[in-house]
Write a protein that binds this DNA or RNA. Structure first.
Lengths: 125, 125
DNA sequence: GTAGCATATCGAGTATTACCGATTCGTATG
DNA sequence: CATACGAATCGGTAATACTCGATATGCTAC
């Protein structure tokens, strides 16, 4: 393990700490495995687009069909559809088919919590 | 405003509702202005990368200098530095200079809330 | 079945982002 | 000042994401 650390970093740790090896070990412990990070990353990625945030905000008050969301976004049908697909793939929204209409709704209130917290966080900037 | 709505959508709303014009108006009300959406989008974008999530997780226990984070990420120095720069630009971390070392720390506990909620959200998938 | 409409998918072009070696900058030390 | 080193920036390239017209799919009604 320590072999993969660059010499420069090792020298730095030597200077910073009395027990550089222990410090190194604890740093390596911070290395979460990739599988645990991929899930939240996918959630944040789905949220990192203005169109998709706008969709979720519009769904706060309840479900909407795709054609109504198209009005809210004011974008071409194929663009809206692909964003809706991403939100669904990410598990942020659920769908319900009624005849030829597809209705979308927030899949978990945690999604709204994320939006609220991000809003508040950005507020204080 | 109604002029910008495609004919097909208008016909759909006509079929779906008794008062399509009122419905149209309420849909337009859902259109938040772009300036309000940009801030949370920037937050989520900063969070939508595995390296940057890993950095924030490592900072849960307290501040680390850039060279230590480099050990955690196991990535080239320039790569680590640019991710740290993005986190700082997004306001998610603060920095402190001590001599030639730069220490990074979580800027707001709301960041950790976002990570926790996203984790829980992804859990149930 | 046929026609029509809402929605989903495909594909190509464009834009954005990630990566990382090389270089520069800022600070401490001799 | 010269040197050393941690950290930030630059530049080019690869990878990924967004857009949107065209087309396909699914459902309804006739």
């Amino acid at each position: 393990m320590a072999d993969s650390v660059p010499e420069s970093t090792r020298r730095t740790l030597d200077r910073l700490y009395d027990d550089p090896d222990d410090r190194l070990a604890s740093l390596f412990d911070l290395t979460a495995d990739d599988t645990e990070l991929e899930a939240p990353r996918a959630v944040f990625k789905a949220l990192s687009n203005e169109h998709r945030i706008r969709i979720l905000e519009a769904l706060r008050d309840g479900e909407l069909c795709a054609c109504e969301i198209q009005v809210v976004l004011d974008a071409p049908q194929s663009t809206v559809a692909s964003h809706l697909g991403e939100l669904k793939d990410a598990g942020l929204v659920n769908t319900r088919r009624r005849g030829k209409w597809t209705y979308y709704r927030i899949g978990d209130t945690a999604v709204l919590q994320l939006l609220d917290i991000a809003d508040a966080l950005a507020e204080g900037t």
